[in-house]
Each structure stands twice: as C-alpha cells, then as structure tokens.
Design a protein around this nucleic acid. Structure first.
Length: 748
DNA sequence: TCTCTCACTTC
DNA sequence: TGAAGTGAGAG
C-alpha cells in the first residue's frame, strides 16, 4: 500500500513527477502574481486537525452536492448508484490488486497530427472554450481485460516561453506568463474495464480549451498534507485553462483503478505524443494551420473552397472585383503589360497556394533546417511514407538560440514550432537521426510502458543518420528520450517501482505504508477542481465527502478549505468516518456526458491540495525541472513508473533530483549551467518542424514582392499605382485562393 | 491581441 | 429542430 518502501524516495521526486502537481512555482503564487485570486485557485488552508473539507465553486458544487446529498437524503445508498455497491471505510481501502498488464497506447490520426505539427499546431482558446482539433484520440492495448482503468488527460506547459508569430514563424517572445491552474480531464467512461477501453478508440474531444481564468468548469480537491500520500492541488474539469501564445503538451494517463478513491495508490502511466504539442492562440496566426483546420474539421466545411460556403462566395466576389478592376485598368492603360502583371499576380497566388508555395518556402526552410527544408508537399509526402521519412517533423530538437533554451542550458531544447530563419540548425531531424535515443520518442510510441515499441519502429531511419553533428545533437538526447512514454507508478503495491530505470523516483519515506485516506478527509477547493465527464466519477468517488461538505459548500465558492473543513466537521463527516460511494462514479460515468451536465462530466478524483504541498511545490517549483517532470522522466526512462499522487516534498535540489533520477538529463543540465529544467522542456517539446508555416507565408509574400518588382521597372508612376492597387486585390484574392490550393497540396 | 457576432456546419 | 462547433472579420 504504501508507496514507499519499494520505491526509493528522492525528496521532491514524487512531487516533481506528480502529474497533477503544478510544474512551476508560479502556479502556487499565481494569485500574487496576477494580483488577484482566481476563484478556482483559492488560498489553501490546512485544517489543524486534518479534518476533511470540501468546497466547490458555487455553480459547480451545487449540482454535485445536490446529486450526492439528494441521494443520501432520499435514503438511497450511494452504492445503489453504481455497480459497485459496497461502501467501504476509507481506512480499509486497499489498492487494486496488482495486475500484470503492459499498456500500449497508439495515437489515432497521427498523420493528421503530424501535418499540423509540422506547421506548428495552433489551438484556439476562447472564453467559452473551444475543442481541440485534431481531437486527441488514442487506442489502447495491453490492458488487463478484467481490470478497471481510469483514463485521464491533461495539458501541461511545454516550456517556459511565451511565443509570437513573427515573420511567418513562431518565435520565442519572452518568458511565459504565470501558468494557469492545471486541470485533469477524466474520460467520461471511466472507470471501465481494460476490455472496454481496448474495444474502442478513446477520444477526448469533449475537452475544451479556454483562456477564461474565471472558468467555473472545474473543482479542486485538497488532501491534508501531513498524511495523505497525495499532496498538492488536483483540479478536474471539462475545460483546461491555457495562456494564449504559449506552447502546450497534452498528456494521456492510464490509471489502473476501479474507483477514483484508489487513484492515490494506483499504477499511473503517462504518455506523451510530441506531435500533439501546440500553441494556444485566441486567433489563428498561421494561415496554413487555418487551412488545415478548415480542410479537416467537419464544422468548418463552410469555409472550404468547394461548395457554396461563405468562403467560396467571398472568393467569387473578390475575383469579380479584381476582374472589374483589371478591365478598367486595361481600358485606361491598355497594354500587354497589364496582362503580364496580372499573370504574375496569379502566378503568385498559385505559388503561394500550392506546390509552388512549398517551393518558395523551401528556400527559406532549407536554411533553417535540412530536414525541414523540404517543401510542404515533400514533407507531407514523406510523412505518408512513414516515420522514417520525416522524423524531424515528429520529434525534433532544436539547438537554437531561443531565449528559453538559452536560459536553460546548453542542452538542446526542443522547440517545437520555432522555425528559425535562416540557417539555424534546426534540427530536429538531425537530432533524431543522430541519436538512436530519439527512437524512444513517444510519438512513436504506441506507447508502451516500456517505450520500446516506438523505438524499435523508428530506429531504422534514424540510426543511419549519425552525422558529424552527432556530438552536438547528443546533448539533445536527453530531450529526445523525454518523449519516450512515461510511465509512472504510484502504486505502493507495485514492487517494480524501485526496480525501474529510475530508482531515484519514489515516494517519500514518510509516505510508506500510508494510506491515502487514512482517516484523512479530502479537501476540496472550490475553484480548483473543474471536472469534465470524468468529474462525474470523481464526484461519485467523493460522494460521501462531497455530500458532507455540500451543505456548506453550496454556493460556496468563497469558502476556504478551513471553512469547508469546519463545515464537514459540523456534519460529522470526517474523512476517517466518511465512506465513499464509488458507485457514484460509475453512476455518473455511465451517464457521462449526461448527468454530469451541471459540471460537465466531472469525475471525482481524489485531489489533494495541501497548503504544505503548495509550499513544497513552490519550493520545488523553483527548479525548472519541475516544470516538465514527466518529460524529464520520459527522457530518462521510458518505462518509469512513478506515483502521481505521491507527496510533494520540497526538493532540496532539483538538480540533485535530476541527477539521481535522470542522470543524462542532469548531466546535460549541469553542463548547460543553471538548471532550469529547460532540458526537460526540450525533451518534451520536440522541435517542431513547422518550418513551413512561416516559410509559407514568407514565400507568399516574397512571391508577391517579386512579382511587383518585376513589374515596377516597366511601369510608369500611374501604372505603378494601378499595379499597386491590383496587387492589393491580388493579395486579397491570394488569401482566398492560396489557402485552398495549399490545403489541397498538403492533403493527401 | 482579444472579444464578439455572423453565417455556416454537424449531430 | 435546435444546440453546439467552426473560422472570418469587425471592432
């Protein structure tokens, strides 16, 4: 049960790798940083007695409470709400019996993701929340058919940088803004048996991305820091709050548990797919991405060339206007020049839009990155041919000079979208090639816990590639490794934890033998937990607890944990005495997209956030390493298991931690200098190749420029003016035509 | 940059 | 039928 014994503990380690823990100090200090206290990130107060407390944002809490309390008040046992009827005291809860399984995860629609990734995937975030496109879908295998699993997804910052789309490419624009509270999205079907999960594609399309810091679609749970094995803030919700112009990396987690309450000691496996990395935006920056979205998202059909959509109509109008202009122009200047210029204009469009565009971009891109130098069309073509064809796109590490990286270390930092202009070593492709390790890339992962599968698959192409730059690239290796599927096992029962490649990872000794709920109530923080479908289950799991608090919490968003605790105490529902209705989870889950309604489908997970934990995490956060703990781990050990819920302990020295847990990474970091975890970030973010997006734009503009240049000499002032006007129109048109064409060329 | 509305789409 | 998901475009 306890995490500990088998898992060598490295102070702070568990926290660093805890999936639900904030990755950097700002998370905890956000209120201070932002000058206000987000409703979902309430100040945490640890009850003196460790009594359980629960609080939820009013809007979110009430429905949950009503549901739970309602059941209780009507005399309906929580157990009746779900298949698992028996209620057990928390004290007696035992971790799910260890089941031998070897989960492998395959990212669905990888080709599509790759197309976006190459160009620097952008995800629009809005106040009300927008879905991700492409949708995050995975197929699981290797699960124990009989065992139950809870599948979750979350999105973490890929690095500490803020980006800007400049000159048709993504560039680092400074340090990242304070990170938003992290929320975990629990798949609404959770928990379900391995057989059920493996029988279908697991999709997280209902998860929404928002930039609304006041978003209420979440809730937070807190656990006493002194005893719970889980410490730290845990938020759930259907919407994930992100910062615009920041890069993110979605993560997928498989937890073998038949109910949420067992999460604290359940095996936790985390998978990263580099190609799903993206930059959050409030408005699309890269036309190419926009076009890809239009071409592939059913809801955007109205903007496609074909059909009678608005786009087509506008295009026609524009063309018509251009013709009118042209006719007039001819009448006024009537010569063959115009025709030639017009021709040029169209040529420009053609270039920008299709293969030509690619070509243009190519020149720019080539300078940037050898592997990326290829035209989009070429790149696409490669992708189609297989991973070997264009690994760079999938996993890349740039050496670059971007601030983030520089700061971090010499170690290569993976820069996803940064396509540096000219001549920079871009490389992701090279790195991959240079290092065999890259094979571990999660991207390839069909991710097995062992992370071998991917490696094996990819190795062919990459291995051959060692080059003179190998040494340089070698530094980047850690990052590459980071892509390996990360597996973390919190399960105390798991004997192998200590045996893994990362012996250093473990839980705090003090935690050993501890039971998550050992007589300790959970603390819910109103703002912190936002749950989605999963949430429902969570709520279910929290059932008793929630019910207890509910009365007090209703409309409580303002209550602090202490207050909540008091309320709970008043109701006589202490964590110790509380029983948990696991069934609610199922109940809720079953209705996953249904009943959850009020809160979306939220699942009840035990989340804990401890004041102490916060402090600890803050301390730990000081090290950038924490920011991408998982990535780091991945880098180091594909098959590492860690306990997501382990107690967050202040990490004395993150570097130390790294050293222990991640030798290579630590070494790299050390070499680089100040340890800021960048290396991890790098590892996490495969450099993307997306060169083309920028190049593409550039190419288009350059094309136009050249056309105008050619015309200018021949034209008199009047003609120039006319030409200029014409060009303006052409530009407008190009915007319409180029996209379609490009998309066509881009899409198979 | 961001927010909002719009016309259009899917489900 | 209508709720909800799209990018465009104006502000």
């Amino acid at each position: 049960m306890s995490l500990s014994m088998r898992d060598p503990v490295i102070p702070g380690t568990s926290m660093a790798y805890h999936p639900f823990l904030p990755h950097r100090a700002p998370d905890f200090a956000m209120s201070a940083v932002l000058g206000h206290q987000p409703p979902f990130f309430p100040a945490l107060t640890l009850p003196p007695n460790g009594a359980a407390a629960l609080s939820l944002p009013g809007a979110l809490a009430k429905p949950i409470m009503d549901q739970l309390v309602g059941a209780a008040e009507t005399g309906i046992p929580f157990s009746s709400l779900g298949p698992q009827t028996h209620l057990r005291p928390l004290k007696t809860m035992e971790p799910e019996e260890e089941v031998e399984d070897d989960p492998k995860v395959h990212l669905e629609a990888k080709e599509l993701w790759d197309q976006f990734h190459k160009r620097g995937t952008e995800m629009v975030i809005t106040k009300s929340g927008r879905r991700m496109f492409p949708p995050f879908k995975v197929r699981c295998s290797g699960l124990d058919k009989k065992a139950k699993y809870i599948l979750l997804m979350d999105i973490i910052a890929a690095d500490d940088c803020r980006y800007k789309f400049h000159n048709s490419r993504w560039m680092v624009a400074g340090k990242a803004d304070p990170e938003m509270p992290k929320r975990m999205y629990i798949h609404p079907d959770s928990p379900a048996t391995g057989e059920q999960w493996m029988s279908k594609v697991v999709t997280f399309h209902k998860l929404k991305l928002t930039n609304n810091i006041s978003d209420k679609h979440g809730f937070t749970l807190a656990f006493p820091s002194d005893q719970a094995t889980w410490q730290g803030n845990y938020s759930f919700g259907t919407q994930t709050i992100l910062n615009s112009m920041h890069k993110y990396q979605p993560r997928f987690h498989i937890v073998r548990a038949n109910d949420i309450l067992k999460l604290p000691y359940s095996t936790f496996r985390t998978y990263l797919f580099p190609e799903t990395e993206f930059i959050a935006v409030t408005a699309y920056q890269n036309d190419k991405i926009t076009q890809l979205k239009i071409d592939n998202n059913p809801f955007a059909k109205g903007f496609r060339d074909t059909g009678n959509g608005r786009r087509e109509k506008r295009k026609q109008l524009t063309l018509q206007s251009m013709r009118v202009f042209d006719d007039r122009h001819k009448k006024e200047n009537g010569t063959s020049d115009e025709s030639s210029s017009e021709q040029a204009a169209f040529n420009c469009f053609a270039q920008s839009s299709s293969p030509a565009v690619s070509t243009v971009g190519t020149s720019n891109l080539k300078d940037l990155c050898p592997s990326e130098g290829e035209s989009d069309a070429e790149a696409d073509s490669k992708e189609e041919h297989g991973p070997e064809a264009c690994d760079a796109a999938k996993i890349s590490t740039t050496t670059s000079e971007d601030p983030c990286r520089d700061k971090g270390s010499p170690a290569v930092k993976a820069h996803l979208f940064a396509a540096e202009p000219g001549g920079r070593p871009r490389d992701s492709g090279r790195l991959d090639k240079a290092s065999p390790d890259s094979r571990h890339s999660p991207a390839t992962i069909s991710s097995s816990t062992r992370g071998l599968g991917a490696e094996e698959r990819r190795s062919p192409g990459r291995e051959s590639a060692a080059t003179s730059k190998a040494a340089e690239e070698a530094r980047a290796l850690p990052g590459k490794e980071a892509f390996a599927p990360l597996t973390v096992q919190t399960d105390p029962a798991a004997a192998h934890l200590g045996q893994g490649p990362l012996p250093g990872l473990g839980f705090a000794p003090g935690l050993a033998g501890q039971q998550f709920f050992n007589g300790h109530p959970l603390f819910l923080h109103p703002g912190q937990f936002a749950m989605g479908g999963a949430f429902s289950s969570m709520a279910a799991g929290m059932g008793p607890l929630l019910a207890t608090v509910s009365g007090a919490s209703t409309g409580v968003s303002g209550l602090d944990s202490t207050a909540m605790a008091s309320a709970a105490a008043a109701q006589g529902l202490s964590g110790a005495s509380a029983t948990l209705p696991f069934h609610l989870q199922q109940h809720v889950l079953a209705s996953q997209g249904l009943a959850m309604s009020p809160f979306g489908s939220l699942f009840p997970y035990p989340y804990t956030y401890m004041a102490a934990a916060a402090a600890a995490s803050s301390a730990a956060a000081s090290s950038s390493v924490h920011r991408h703990p998982f990535l780091n781990l991945n880098t180091m050990r594909p098959r590492l298991r860690y306990s997501p819920y382990s107690i967050p302990m202040p990490v004395p020295d993150s570097s130390g931690l790294l050293t222990t847990a991640l030798p290579s990474m630590a070494a790299a970091a050390a070499a680089a200098g100040p340890l800021d975890g960048k290396a991890a970030a790098l590892a996490a973010s495969p450099a993307s190749v997306a060169v083309d997006s920028g190049s593409e734009l550039n190419s288009r503009s350059s094309t136009l420029s050249s056309s105008s240049v050619s015309l200018s000499p021949k034209l008199c002032p009047e003609k120039e003016a006319a030409t200029s006007e014409l060009q303006n129109i052409q530009r407008l048109v190009s915007g319409l035509e180029a996209k379609p064409d490009r998309s066509r060329s881009a899409s198979p």
